[in-house]
Design a protein around this nucleic acid. Structure first.
Lengths: 160, 160
DNA sequence: TCAAATATGTCAACATGGCTGACATAACTC
DNA sequence: GAGTTATGTCAGCCATGTTGACATATTTGA
């Protein structure tokens, strides 16, 4: 329990420092991250993923859009949908933050033996509540392969 | 990255529901937890462990003491110190919350193979910033062995 | 022994990011 | 054209983080 607590505290600590320079918080980071991983994400998808309310999301999303980190496009099939994409500026920031966290993870994996990655991956996945596990697997799978970033893919993830 | 995010989200989700019944939040949980694991902890120790400010801690600590979950005793050697202990009531709640989280962890370990525990433990420890790692190891070691809960031990942990 | 340092408590004020509930708009569906 | 859906927005509440200043009791050291 303690290990999880401290590991997560430090995992989120690195980006927090960078975000503070932009006047952003952890909430902005989460939005940036998931839009980065899943371009064309709908607002409803984000709400499901983050498990927060519309109002909480609206606040940070408005800022991110207003300051030019995220853009919206109307959906091609359903024009009510606002599909979310990072701007170049947004992508730069997201990459910067991701790099920090990935570096920490890679250093930890390197320090903890060759079999650690697979075992840890299995453990973390098993820690996730069963009803969300499949969704997360899809999300992680897409992220790892660095593809499947089409709108269609996001739609699938969004359902559940 | 996603796995860590979702795993932690669900790890903290179970206790949150219970805490809400008492009108408590995650901040109260953290205090209960560390006092449970390290009876006789000083206020200064808690501040270091949680990395929050005195005011943030004071707020929740005051509630926990006021509602009879935690008691304070003046230190034997240095009477300025307020050593923190759980009351029977506090211990019951702490155990209840710990049980929830331990159950999830044990289920995840069981589901992820025999070597997962050691590998995951190594990984999580390596994720912690180096300057805190030794402290956490001491804390985790003490917790695991269910001993070393003397005031002296807490003093050692508190230093750094 | 008295002054300084230390451990803790407390106050005021503020920011972030959760929450609820209500309501508006546009677009799709039947 | 009515109802449903996706989104946006408003007002206001709560929890928990922050800073800075100051009070009190106690220990320590010159």
């Amino acid at each position: 329990m303690e290990l999880l607590f401290f590991a997560y505290r430090d995992f989120t600590g690195d980006p927090d420092a960078v975000l503070a320079q932009y006047g952003f918080g952890r909430a902005h980071h989460r939005v940036l991250h998931f839009v980065n991983r899943n371009p064309g994400l709908r607002v409803a998808n984000l709400l499901e993923i983050l498990k927060i309310t519309k109002q909480s999301l609206a606040r940070v999303l408005k800022q991110l859009i207003g300051e030019g980190f995220i853009t919206q496009k109307a959906g091609a099939e359903d024009r009510r949908e606002r599909l979310l994409y990072l701007t170049a500026k947004g992508a730069r920031l997201a990459e910067k933050l991701t790099l920090l966290q990935v570096s920490r993870i890679e250093a930890a994996l390197a320090a903890s033996g060759s079999e650690a990655e697979i075992a840890t991956r299995r453990f973390l996945l098993a820690m996730i509540s069963e009803e969300d596990r499949a969704q997360v697997e899809a999300l992680v799978g897409a992220g790892n392969a660095s593809l499947n970033t089409s709108i269609k893919q996001d739609r699938i993830i969004g359902e559940a």
